[in-house]
């Protein structure tokens, strides 16, 4: 297995520029958003499937769900296990990853198990979780952790073990102690990749929490999806799905911007 899968630093199309100015690229993007919605609307009016509501009715449903608070309560429910799970994964994942990067024995013991967890479809284990952790919050937190932790651990480990040998040598040439080397060179050097791991971990956690809500017990956004599907309220159901996709895209996008602002000054444009 080579590095790119675990580091998971997705190559990015230069689609999202930090500026809000309506550049040519921005017009294209607005156009593509509008275009997609028009296609959606037309496809629904044909209709291509009875279970395919129009864009407008989906948006109306979305507003109604936000207005009567259903959407907001659902997100409060969904975000709780997500945040707890990501916090746990980040806390122990980064610590474990750093120790793996610094200690050969740790690395030898832990790396293969996390590589397996990263590459294998661990989602298969979610039905088993209920037998141990019941149907409540804990089970969902565990679902988030098993999907979010491996990428966080592996990214932290890779980031630390790939720390620039030049900078480490530089630190040694100025008689830096091992602690100074770790604290002043290795960790800051690894921070961008570790943060990218966190971002990918959150994306994984999203998949986990939605899956848990669909498979274990319907709560939160998962409940909105299943409930409205069972009642054939397709506009509401689509609104819930659309909101999850948008919410996750916004979260991941914001984290990405934070990453560039705080950790990669060389990638910032302009100045």
């Amino acid at each position: 297995m080579t590095t790119s899968s675990a580091t998971g630093d997705l190559p990015r199309a230069p689609g999202r520029s930090p500026a809000f100015l309506p550049t040519k690229a921005a017009w294209y993007r607005i156009l593509s958003v509008v275009g997609l919605f028009v296609i959606w609307q037309i496809a629904a009016l044909i209709p291509i499937s009875p279970a395919f509501p129009t864009f407008t009715s989906t948006i109306v449903a979305f507003y109604e769900m936000v207005a009567d608070g259903r959407m907001i309560f659902a997100y409060a429910d969904t975000l709780k296990p997500l945040l707890i799970g990501v916090a746990i994964s980040a806390g122990f994942g980064i610590l474990l990853g750093i120790s793996m990067g610094l200690n050969r024995l740790f690395q030898w013991f832990w790396e293969p198990i996390f590589v397996v967890m990263q590459a294998a479809p661990v989602a298969a284990l979610i039905p088993l979780i209920t037998y141990v952790y019941g149907l409540g919050l804990t089970a969902k937190v565990v679902a988030v952790v098993i999907l979010a932790a491996p990428i966080i651990v592996l990214n932290s480990y890779k980031a630390v073990s790939n720390a620039s040998p030049n900078l480490i040598q530089m630190c040694a040439s100025f008689q830096g102690t091992r602690l100074q080397q770790i604290w002043k060179v290795i960790i800051p050097n690894a921070a961008p990749v570790m943060f990218a791991g966190l971002r990918l971990g959150i994306a994984g956690g999203f998949i986990g929490v939605i899956l848990a809500e669909l498979l274990i017990t319907p709560t939160g956004v998962g409940d909105l999806i299943t409930f409205h599907r069972s009642r054939a309220d397709y506009a509401e159901m689509y609104a819930a799905v659309l909101s999850v996709m948008t919410f996750s895209a916004l979260t991941v996008g914001l984290l990405e911007r934070a990453e560039i602002n705080f950790f990669r000054p060389e990638k910032k444009k302009g100045r």
Binding site: L10, A13, G15, R16, L200, A203, V221, V241, M245, V252
Partner: peptide, 20 residues
């Protein structure tokens, strides 16, 4: 410009919600 944004979004989207 037209497709890049969607491809980026879909690559990290919680697709499990789309399965229903």
């Amino acid at each position: 410009n037209v497709l890049g944004m969607w491809v980026n979004i879909m690559a990290s989207a919680p697709l499990s919600s789309l399965v229903p």
